[in-house]
Design a binder for these strands. Sequence first.
DNA 1: AACGGGACCAACCGCGCTCAC
DNA 2: AGTGAGCGCGGTTGGTCCCGT
Length: 258
Amino acid sequence: MVRTPCCDKTGLKKGTWTPEEDRKLTAYITKYGSWNWRQLPKFAGLSRCGKSCRLRWMNYLRPNLKRGNFSKEEEQLIIELHESLGNRWSTIAAKLPGRTDNEIKNHWHTYLKKLARPIPVSQGEKPSSSNRSKRKSAGEKRSDQSKNSLSNPSTNHQILESSQFSPHESPSELCSLMIDTAQENSASFGESTEVSPNEMFFETIESFWTEPFLEDIYDAKYVVAPLLDTEFFSSDSPFIGDELFCSYGFSDEYVLKF
DNA sequence: AACGGGACCAACCGCGCTCAC
DNA sequence: AGTGAGCGCGGTTGGTCCCGT
């Protein structure tokens, strides 16, 4: 079978995400969910591959992500799970709420691998170079990076916003933050390059909105109305379902709060 | 103070799986 | 059964920062 490219590469942006792109993606997914990653960037006004959007959301923008240092318990768990599971990072990540496979993978390759299988000094390994105690911890470095913001100073603001979704925040706080963000974004809908729900509904009715997403669970009033009001998240809402919350990246625990 | 090498981590790439047709 | 679209996963890359010299 011939593999089709994940997207048309021409004209698509690559590299570090800008705060504006983060904002668009967050606002869009907060409002509409990730109904189709491939189509999503088009409707969200992003010149990105859908895959890139998914990765950005899953690894960075998701609201219930932990940021910062791995605890001793987490590190121990990763080591144990890696012993039994191998490089199945997504499975390991599933055991560590708020951690992404990418984050765990990076942490493993940069730090835990050396803990799990210490390399004898006699083999020429420079112990000091791999000893993070001589360097800043990951979390400290991350907060440092928030100063220079992942190679883009302007990214910092967005990261700080993301960091508001820290494990210290309650789910309801997270929810309100998300809603605030969405409402803020909704207010600027008109001047944004995002496609408004109305536009999407009427202009692409033959394609996107006629997909099962619309036929099965969508009601026109939800398309036109702001989606992030309490009705949207109420248990009566036709939106509420495992699929939706999976697409939002909410955990089960998170769902119960609604 | 400047520079080079290593560490770190976000993002990309390509493969494989699943599902719908 | 064959095909293609979509997505998830794991490996790899590339940019940036920090530390040692």
